[in-house]
Design a binder for these strands. Structure first.
Length: 211
DNA sequence: TGCCAGGCCCTCTTTAGGGCCTT
């Protein structure tokens, strides 16, 4: 897999996992993957698949996600789905909301099928904490409302959350471009911004725009 | 319905603690 951090920020795969819990190191597995591919700011492809983790999920996860054990019973195994998702990712850069969480599951599930993921992942939450410092909080649902982004009819399903994260990602690009008069933002610049101390965000963007 | 992990980030910090996010 080759990845291109110098690629434009508006071309990427935005993805989201639903899982049986919080930690793959403690036996949790993916139960659903959803993704939206954007190219030059437009949605050009989608991926959504439930997957059977091989055990019953808790009642908490059933009600949190709306994904029942009954639904998972006939779903393909994680390994089969993850191989297909690796093909879907291809060479694109990745985005997720609170990416450290989704990255852990992506790496753990891909390792199970012999794929060592080495791509770039940007975090929309870290960016939103810098760009929307006055938002009430930086949960996906709050940011969607805060920025008047079209919501899906459900939350906590993989494709719906991916769709909303993709809209948030594009909105952040749009807001940065209009606020700092930037002609184009690279994926790498977005990643750098997500690691810039909050107090230095303005100077980072100002210096970048004058380069 | 929740507090199982872990990275980020602030503060009454660095020999640490706790809230925010994700499921």
């Amino acid at each position: 897999m080759h990845h291109y951090p110098e690629a434009s920020a508006d071309t990427a795969v935005i993805f989201d996992f639903e899982t049986s819990g919080l930690s793959p190191n403690y036996g949790d597995r993916a139960i659903e993957i959803g993704a939206v591919r954007i190219k030059s700011g437009k949605v050009v492809d989608r991926f959504q698949q439930l997957m059977n983790p091989g055990f019953r999920i808790s009642g908490f996860i059933e009600s949190y996600t709306g994904i029942s054990n009954e639904l998972l019973k006939d779903a393909p195994a994680c390994e089969e789905v993850m191989e297909a998702f690796a093909d879907f990712i291809g060479e694109d850069n990745l985005v997720a909301h609170n990416a450290s969480f989704d990255k852990r599951f992506l790496e753990a599930e891909l390792e199970r099928v012999g794929i060592h993921f080495r791509g770039n992942i940007a975090c929309s939450m870290l960016l939103a904490r810098r760009i929307y410092q006055r938002a009430p909080n930086h949960k996906l649902g709050t940011l969607v409302a805060y920025r008047n982004i079209q919501a899906e009819d459900v939350f906590h399903r993989a494709l719906a959350d991916s769709e909303m994260t993709s809209r948030l990602w594009l909105k952040m690009i749009e807001d940065l471009q209009s606020q700092y008069l930037l002609p184009e933002l690279s994926f790498a610049t977005m990643q750098k911004l997500s690691r810039t101390p909050k107090s230095k965000v303005h100077s980072f963007l100002s210096s970048f725009s004058s380069e």
